[in-house]
Amino acid sequence: MASFGELLCNHTDELVNRWYEWWKKEGPELPEMTEAVIKDHLPIQLRVIGEALREGRGSESPRKLWEHHRRLDPEQRVRDEVPIEEVVREYAYVIEVVRSWLNERDEQVSVQDYSFFSLAIFELAAESARRFAKYQAEQVARDRSEYVAGIAHQLRTPVTTLSLHVQQLERGHGSPDPRAVERLRRTVDRLSRLVDGILRLERFKPDELPVHPEALAPAQVIGQLVADYEHDASRKGLRLDISVNRSARMQVDRDLLVDALGNLIQNAIKYTEKGFVRVTLEEQDDEVVFKVEDSGPGISPERQRELFRPVRPGQPGGVGLGLTIAFRAAVAQGGTLELESEPGRGSTFLLRLPRAVRAREGVTGGLVETSLGNDASPRVH
């Protein structure tokens, strides 16, 4: 009669297929993600356990079986966003499948061998959880480091501009040039808005942001923002156009509107090397649509799916904090942020806001993780 170790080694494929059928019958929550996580590695893992039993190591601790990285790949599971509880449940299916398979065949195995097998599967799930926790902690540390670096990068430009304006004033004689004073004021305003936006990003979730609507003319807000960024655009030789209905009125939070539009305009200027950046406004029934269009390089479909993911400013090709702040400002007011873009044909961001935004007092629960939930995902076309 074959030993338990030989049974596992000789019938690996059959057991994996049985596990797969069991897994499908149970209805996994994330079938497209979890199938390969276990199935691709299970044959190796079953043979590792079988070989250990066949070699008489059933009295040893099975923990050492999983010290070799090649025998499982939890990092792939993390990259695929498969929850650890899903993996633990699927390894539990392995034990159930092997137990029922042994009963069907009326195979007699020793308590010691079966205990070793069960503990080996348990240790496999535990090792996956340990690596998952380590990987996640390292990822959080990397993201936080990149996040802080992104904040520093965002602050550097207005601080440098502010320093240059102050030096110009110091070199002047007599009364300061009113134009220089106005540029200084606008730079200070930009810096203040950026700091306020970052603080709101850190302190509140999108659905907890305080919203204080006021009656205003959106054309006036757009005009002020365009004036603030006109110097940046002209320095790159870009046209900064406006097409708005000056009679339009809405009830909206001015600070959040400036957060959203200001960052969209800044991003458009930043990533457009030639041509134009255009800001338009359309009134549609009970909502107002702000469009920020550019003649930049456009965004690939793959990159579009990454744009609104959790803040990781240090990633290659990342857009920093701007889009995150803009998106949260839209969601907080019951609006949406959409993207229309094709490589080589520029990009258009559409900020849709209700004509009359509802007021809300902020709910402060301490710092929140700077990520965007799936319930508030933007649309891309």
Rank of each mutant, 00 (worst) to 15 (best):
G366W: 12
Q220E: 15
L307G: 05
G275C: 07
S59N: 13
W66E: 06
G318Y: 02
Y147Q: 14
L264E: 06
R183S: 09
L8S: 08
E35V: 08
E32C: 01
E6W: 01
G318V: 00
V159G: 03
V363T: 14
S163E: 09
E67P: 01
V226D: 02
I151L: 15
D207W: 08
G344L: 03
E138L: 14
G298C: 05
E340S: 11
V258D: 15
P31W: 01
V188M: 12
D113G: 04
Q315F: 03
S377Y: 01
R171Y: 06
N10E: 13
E75I: 04
K274Q: 14
E6T: 02
W66V: 05
Q333S: 07
R144Q: 13
E138Y: 02
I325C: 07
E14S: 12
S347C: 08
R186P: 02
G27I: 06
S234C: 03
T187S: 15
R131S: 11
P83R: 09
S163C: 06
I198N: 03
V98Q: 03
V319Y: 08
D189H: 09
T370L: 14
N10G: 12
Y20D: 08
N10H: 09
A217C: 12
E29H: 09
M250K: 08
E32K: 04
A268T: 05
L256Q: 13
E306Y: 05
W19D: 03
E107Q: 04
G262H: 05
S128D: 13
F116N: 04
E230N: 11
A329P: 09
S347E: 06
W19K: 03
E170F: 13
L225S: 11
Y135S: 10
R47K: 15
Q154A: 13
R239W: 06
V48W: 01
Q266V: 00
D177C: 10
I44R: 10
Q168V: 11
R105I: 10
V363D: 12
R47N: 10
L162K: 00
T364C: 07
H173F: 05
S371G: 12
R254E: 15
Q76R: 14
K274W: 04
S175C: 04
